[in-house]
Design a protein around this nucleic acid. Structure first.
Lengths: 340, 340
DNA sequence: ACATTAAATGTAAGCGCTTACATTTATAAC
DNA sequence: GTTATAAATGTAAGCGCTTACATTTAATGT
């Protein structure tokens, strides 16, 4: 591999000049610039990015921590982020935190030790305090889907209260009055917010939230399955089920089939997130759109702006959900009676 | 940030000694090793990985190029790879090639310019020649889902002929005789192989492959939709449809519904890949398992072995597909008649 | 006690760049 | 033709490590 030294010799200039043309420094005459680029071409020179990083104290890499590399939710987010950065010559180092405190911390440590210039974090298990302390460190970061008031300018969020509200309102407007709810883990902010929006809509329709119709899941498919099974066994009847995300909704659909319920006639089911497979399930799932790809791109812009001082479109931290109506909500007709 | 120099001063030893304890060099007495680690702790020292890379000429990073960061296929693959590498302190730089020749080349260039020690490539558009030339370069790489005879020892493959065979055989065993087929782009090796296996099974059942029942798709959902629509319009009747991947199968399912066909009674549909949403569609899709996660891990092991000289479990390049029977194939009964 | 050898530690060069500062060269003003 | 000023280029010191080689110290045999 040719080095800058060989280029400088071939071009008959100093190291510094070669470095200047590489970095588009203005103070280089056209003549020498041409000599240098010619020499580079001749030698097939490629700058050594490691050496550049060491000398300039900038690794041009940004770390991304997500819970999982797989699954319908993170894909679009990573995709938007990668795209933004590659166009800027930055690279993306990706790690997975698996929603586990220890592994999330390790992941962050790992990315920092890799000299990332900035971090994009989608973390769930790590504490607010930890993140606040982290924010005092040398590596700037932005949070996706997490709100910490002390760090509010770097939290990129969905308005989950509104989303919960939209979902419930839609179901209510279809005439449902007895609505069960499978939430996420309620210590998680997003799960709590979605439920709060849900309750707001109920209140608007002068309905009380029935705690018996609440099942706390964990955002994973299996808990949707278990959730409906459990709700179905208790005595309060319901005609619709709202799930705090699509995965649980799909689990609930499977459960409904096992219980012999016809969808959506005997039970309406609503999801949340609008992951791509919601179009593929049958009946197609009505849900709430979570513009995770846009939010990913926004996080990337945040880094470009705050870490690399690039011009970006104006930064936005709060995103709005949107109702997606498909075919999983029926107009209220029959009522499930519990079997208890 | 503390540097090795400060550690050495605090511990009262030389730079080299500090470096030695970092790298677990054997020739360090226990006493000094303790002094040094104590100093490190006291200073909160973290090695600068960029400097390490420059000095050791090893970046400890491996590049991964996939077609898309999203989608059900690549997620599990990335996940397996990330896991393997993180446990070894290597990091993963991910880029997307979008099945486009220019972008794939750019992606590879990008990863190489980032001083990756090795590459894992899932490329589709780039030519064999390009890859053969690339193999002469300084950065070793392994290919997933691509066969080039000159590079056969670094091609990690699924036995697609077998997979195509298994799918067809299962459908034939259920009594179907008129079987339509939506293939991938036939210039792609995997698409061709799957079709070849399909034909083998047909031959085994003394059936001829009917070219009228072949539609060439592009592995994407929309082409599955179009494919079935088109096949349905021609004159040859068929009772089953085999698709060369799950995405197209799902597209075909939507198409079938739009055509008013009851699944699987009036039309049996078979997929390929066993991506996770095949369980969620209705009826649940019978398919062929593609152990992409294992193959990803194997690719990671290949890199560990060939690039970092690590001990790994024995390397395997050919993986076997497996039939997954769900509910989308009926025992042969009614026949669709074409509308032509 | 002394030579012989192995183990532990230190010295210093170098990895391929960037960049502050010094120097040279061109340009303009009088 | 000087001198002042700006533009272009060069010099050399790092960035924070690794590692070949040199040196010192400890262990062993006699």
């Amino acid at each position: 591999m040719a080095t800058i030294y060989e280029v400088s010799k071939l071009a008959g200039v100093s190291l510094a000049t070669v470095s200047r043309v590489m970095n588009n420094n203005a103070n280089v005459s056209d003549a020498t610039r041409k000599k240098v680029t010619a020499a580079m071409d001749e030698l097939g020179y490629r700058p050594n990015s490691i050496a550049q990083s060491l000398a300039s104290n900038c690794s041009n890499s940004v770390g991304l921590l997500v819970s999982e590399l797989q699954g319908p939710f993170y894909g679009p987010m990573m995709s938007g982020i990668e795209n933004t950065f590659r166009n800027q010559g930055k690279h993306l180092i990706i790690a997975a935190g698996h929603s586990d405190e220890e592994r999330e911390k390790q992941g962050i440590e790992f990315l920092i030790s890799r000299n990332c210039d900035g971090l994009i974090l989608h973390v769930e298990a790590v504490s607010d305090d930890y993140l606040i302390k982290l924010s005092k460190g040398r590596t700037p970061f932005v949070l996706i889907n997490r709100y910490i008031s002390e760090l509010s300018d770097r939290c990129i969020l969905l308005n989950n209260i509104k989303g919960g509200y939209l979902a419930a309102k839609h179901v209510l407007e279809q005439g449902h009055k007895d609505i069960a709810y499978i939430s996420g883990p309620l210590w998680k902010r997003d799960a709590k917010d979605r439920l709060e929006g849900h309750k707001q809509a109920l209140a608007e329709f002068n309905l009380e939230f029935d705690e018996n119709l609440l099942f706390q899941g964990d955002f994973m498919e299996a808990s949707g399955y278990e959730g409906l099974k459990s709700l179905h066994q208790q005595t309060h009847p319901f005609t619709a089920l709202i799930c705090a995300n699509d995965e649980m909704a799909v689990g609930a659909m499977a459960s409904a089939r096992d219980l012999g319920l016809t969808l959506p006639k005997q039970l309406s089911i609503m999801g949340y997130d609008n992951v791509f497979f919601t179009r593929h399930v049958y009946p197609q799932l009505s849900t709430v759109n979570y513009p995770i790809d846009e939010m990913g791109r926004m996080a990337a812009d945040w880094v470009l702006n705050h870490v690399y001082q690039k011009q970006t479109p104006p930064l936005q931290t709060l995103f709005e959900p949107e109702l997606i109506v498909r075919h999983s909500i029926s107009r209220q007709s029959a009522q499930i009676t519990s079997q208890g």
